[in-house]
Amino acid sequence: GQVHVGDTTYHFPNPEEARKFAEKAAKENNLQVTQHGNTFKVE
């Protein structure tokens, strides 16, 4: 799974890890998570 936060892309071998990371980043920054397959975008 990939997580895009601003201009930075994080790669995770496990989509579940990617999702947890995205949700945590979104919560900390008052942002939203959008999911496209195994790619998550925090914005």
Results as ranks from 00 to 15, higher is better:
residue 19 R to F: 09
residue 31 L to V: 07
residue 43 E to A: 12
residue 4 H to P: 01
residue 40 F to H: 04
residue 4 H to Q: 14
residue 4 H to F: 13
residue 27 K to A: 13
residue 17 E to N: 03
residue 23 E to C: 08
residue 18 A to L: 00
residue 31 L to D: 05
residue 17 E to P: 00
residue 25 A to T: 15
residue 17 E to W: 04
residue 35 Q to I: 09
residue 9 T to E: 07
residue 30 N to Q: 09
residue 29 N to S: 12
residue 32 Q to K: 14
residue 37 G to S: 04
residue 6 G to P: 01
residue 39 T to A: 11
residue 20 K to L: 13
residue 11 H to F: 15
residue 7 D to F: 09
residue 27 K to G: 08
residue 41 K to V: 15
residue 17 E to Y: 04
residue 32 Q to N: 10
residue 28 E to W: 07
residue 23 E to R: 02
residue 23 E to A: 06
residue 21 F to M: 02
residue 17 E to L: 09
residue 16 E to M: 06
residue 6 G to F: 14
residue 5 V to Y: 13
residue 26 A to F: 01
residue 20 K to T: 10
residue 37 G to H: 05
residue 38 N to W: 06
residue 8 T to H: 14
residue 2 Q to L: 14
residue 39 T to E: 12
residue 16 E to Q: 07
residue 33 V to E: 01
residue 28 E to F: 08
residue 33 V to C: 07
residue 16 E to N: 06
residue 36 H to N: 13
residue 6 G to K: 06
residue 38 N to T: 10
residue 42 V to S: 02
residue 43 E to Q: 11
residue 9 T to W: 14
residue 17 E to R: 01
residue 36 H to Q: 12
residue 19 R to G: 05
residue 36 H to I: 14
residue 19 R to N: 04
residue 20 K to Y: 08
residue 29 N to A: 13
residue 35 Q to R: 11
residue 22 A to D: 01
residue 29 N to M: 15
residue 19 R to E: 06
residue 29 N to I: 06
residue 23 E to F: 11
residue 1 G to W: 15
residue 34 T to V: 12
residue 22 A to M: 00
residue 18 A to C: 02
residue 15 P to M: 15
residue 6 G to T: 04
residue 34 T to G: 03
residue 27 K to T: 09
residue 29 N to K: 12
residue 19 R to H: 06
residue 29 N to P: 05
residue 8 T to Y: 13
residue 36 H to Y: 13
residue 33 V to I: 11
residue 36 H to F: 13
residue 3 V to T: 02
residue 31 L to A: 13
residue 24 K to M: 13
residue 33 V to Q: 01
residue 29 N to Q: 13
residue 24 K to G: 08
residue 26 A to K: 01
residue 1 G to P: 11
residue 23 E to M: 10
residue 35 Q to Y: 07
residue 19 R to L: 10
residue 30 N to H: 10
residue 20 K to R: 12
residue 2 Q to C: 11
residue 26 A to W: 02
residue 38 N to Y: 07
residue 34 T to N: 07
residue 40 F to A: 03
residue 21 F to N: 02
residue 22 A to N: 00
residue 10 Y to L: 06
residue 3 V to R: 00
residue 25 A to H: 15
residue 28 E to A: 11
residue 17 E to F: 03
residue 28 E to S: 07
residue 14 N to Q: 04
residue 5 V to C: 10
residue 21 F to H: 04
residue 29 N to F: 14
residue 35 Q to E: 07
residue 20 K to F: 08
residue 4 H to M: 14
residue 23 E to K: 04
residue 2 Q to T: 15
residue 25 A to K: 13
residue 13 P to Q: 12
residue 42 V to I: 10
residue 43 E to I: 11
residue 40 F to K: 00
residue 25 A to D: 03
residue 6 G to V: 04
residue 7 D to C: 09
residue 24 K to H: 12
residue 34 T to R: 07
residue 37 G to W: 02
residue 41 K to S: 11
residue 28 E to C: 08
residue 21 F to G: 01
